[in-house]
Amino acid sequence: MKALVSLVFVLLLVAIAWIGSEAGGEVVFGVVLPYAAFLVFLVGFTWKIVKWARAPVPFRIPTTSGQQKSLPWIRQARFDNPATGLQVVGRMALEVLLFRSLFQNTKAEMRTEKGRGPRLVFGGDKSLWIVSLIFHWTFLVILIRHLRFFLDPVPGWLLTLGNLDAFFQVSVPALYITDVLVVLALGILLLRRFTNSQVRAISLVSDYFPLLLLLGVVISGIVVRYFAKTDVVGVKELGANLLTLRLSVPAGIGAQAYVHLFLVCTLLAYFPFSKLMHAGGVFLSPTRNLANNNRMVRHINPWNRPVAYHRFEDWEKEFAKEIEDAGYELERD
């Protein structure tokens, strides 16, 4: 049901862009909305980070996933339990670039064997790790590849990236490997929300919608490139116009391209207000981005507020009888 609602949303977006651009709304879909969406993305993303950052980190609470730094002859797990800023950078880099925590994922299974009773077994499970890693990296490559519509002249490294991506040289224009992988990865990520009973139970509309929206973006992009082709030169002209604040739309960009563009705009505008902000949020996560040097360096809590203590003097009075009974001679200055 939640998936269906999300699908309807995405299809609706497709229809809006298709009909709208055909009905003479090229300027809206080619200029106004891209600017608006990009602005919302920039401001929204920054605002969200600032919003989080306005709350302090009162305590240093890293999750330690390895041996601490203690005695010199005990080997510290530098990346799982960093003790210095540099080691934290290492931990964060592994987390952000390679999804290290997810790499360690396991799957628990209850097995029932005769004469033994139920038994929990745990196995490594790299499936989610590999699929999400593929999705994120291919999406990044695709994003970078699109720079060719905005950079003039197209730099050599960008051509090289495209050529590497089109390494197999099948089809005309050459098929990008990332295009195939990103659809596969998104498809699997979507599929597991249906087939994995646990994931199904936790999924919300706001989980299906971004997945389907991304699939919409990717599929419409593929259509525009391989099937219902558009005028690439016109697209690039539009890119240049947008960059130089020239508010005109070249002719010859078909509705299919506006659909793609509109879905991208939706994604951009939706990004800051959705779970997609994990992209920025992961950098602020206090269980990952802090060194476990708690006993070495004092962490300052800006609101460390006073609390009512039970003072020694009061305690001494309240338990005077017991203290005398114990024969303590409690001294103090």
């Binding site: 969200k48 919003k51 989080w52 950052a53 306005r54 709350a55 302090p56 980190v57 009162p58 609470i61 925590s101 997810l102 994922n105 396991t106 799957k107 628990a108 989610l128 999400s132 597991r192 994995n196 646990q198 994931v199 936790i202 999924s203 919300l204 989980d207 779970k275 902000m277 994990h278 949020g281 992961v282 602020l284 996560s285 206090p286 269980t287 609101w303």
Partner: peptide
Amino acid sequence: LERFRSFGLFMDICVRCGACADK
């Protein structure tokens, strides 16, 4: 939400990937 960054952040960034489910 104003005193603990962890709270606001953890409210916002979960993607419900399910990695924690059977942990």
